[in-house]
């Protein structure tokens, strides 16, 4: 771990360099493994470095002579970096639609191995995209703010609750700014497909001067401090990982339906080290789908056949359907409708 800390010191200088080379913004950059290793693996990801570092460390230790450069960027910046030709080997993203577009438009390369066979058919696409986590879109609430109120179990419960206690929740509701966050947009468009109640909920939230966020982490932080009472469509895995917050937050998975986002990995077409990239993707797949749990795996492992466990879980399906909401006209239309509902 000392090595990791040392790498983090370097990240500032490297990130400046990276920005200079390709026109995209990065949020963080860490190096795992020997600094001067002969082989290098360039990973671009939307997942927080703190969350992911232990899993990277396991892989670097196993490889021995491999240095992993782990760059964190937002999903839209990731898209821009890859299409702009930035020299990355592997792209990890929670934005399934953008990952699908990368694969559809030919920016990725196929990969097939013993490990890829472990991935269920619904969790991979064209041997190009492989899901390595399933994370719910959850409601995160502050128990303190809900004193004397029943915790909502469905979206209709939530709508009713917000309408009945407008004064109590005004300005204390948070959700993604879908225009800014790729993941927020994905969750919102899936909500629209799943249920009519989404637009009603959005209208109610709009009437309550809802705060809009770029990221799940900020929403969780604000709920824990009591700045907002609840946050809608937060990445449940991030909230679950914040064990340090104790009972200051509570995670609610709706019973009418809970959207499951699949975090996917893709090996990029122009990968400079495709062998290491393939080994890395296999490593992620084994951590997610292989037998035996890995302590360093940062995401909750859902029992396979999620449908059987809970009918409410709705994994987002990989496939060309995800391209529809990336259509410029479609997105424009959706955002204008959303803004109307949010009263922005």
């Amino acid at each position: 771990m000392r090595h990791l800390a040392f790498s983090a010191l370097l990240s500032g200088a490297l990130s400046v360099l990276a920005v200079a080379v390709a026109a995209f913004e990065i949020e963080n950059h860490i190096v795992v493994g020997p600094e001067d290793a002969p082989r290098r693996l360039q990973v671009i990801s939307t997942a927080d470095a703190d969350l992911f570092a232990p899993l990277l460390q396991v892989f670097a230790d196993r490889q021995g002579d491999l240095r992993i450069d782990y760059t964190v960027a937002s999903s839209t910046e990731l898209m821009r970096a890859v299409t702009g030709g930035a020299p990355f080997d592997v792209a990890l993203s929670s934005a399934m639609d953008l990952q699908t577009k990368l694969a559809n438009d030919g920016h990725t390369r196929p990969h097939r191995s013993a490990a890829t066979a472990l991935v269920p058919a619904r969790a991979r696409w064209r041997d190009h995209l492989f899901a390595f986590s399933q994370e719910p879109a959850a409601l995160v609430i502050s128990p303190a703010a809900f004193q004397g109120l029943e915790v909502p179990r469905t979206r209709l419960d939530l709508i009713r609750l917000l309408r009945d206690h407008e004064d109590r929740f005004r300005g204390r509701v948070g959700t993604y700014d879908v225009a800014q966050s790729g993941l927020g947009y994905l969750f919102a468009t899936q909500d629209v497909r799943a249920s009519e109640s989404y637009w009603r909920l959005t209208e109610v939230m709009g009437s309550l001067e809802t705060r809009l966020y770029c990221c799940s982490g900020d929403m969780i932080e604000d709920v824990s401090t009591g700045r907002i009472a609840l946050a809608y469509n937060v990445l449940g895995s991030y909230a679950a990982a914040r064990t340090d917050l104790g009972d200051r937050i509570e995670i609610v998975e709706f019973q009418d339906y809970t959207t499951l986002m699949l975090r996917t990995a893709a090996i990029l077409r122009d990968a400079r080290n495709p062998d290491a990239a393939a080994a890395f993707v296999d490593h992620l797949i084994r951590a997610a789908w292989g037998a035996g749990e890995m302590e360093e795996y940062p995401f909750p492992r859902l029992p396979e056949q999620g449908e059987a466990v809970s009918a409410a879980l709705r994994p987002i399906r990989l496939g060309p359907g995800l391209l529809v909401h990336l259509d410029a006209l479609k997105r424009q239309g959706f955002l204008s409708e959303w803004r109307d509902a949010m009263r922005r």
Partner: peptide, 22 residues
């Protein structure tokens, strides 16, 4: 002229094969 691309228009192609769609 306005178009509201239906979700099914592209997802139906994904049901048949895992081919790229344009």
């Amino acid at each position: 002229v306005s178009v509201d691309l239906p979700y099914a228009a592209l997802s139906m192609l994904g049901n048949v094969s895992e081919d790229r769609v344009f």
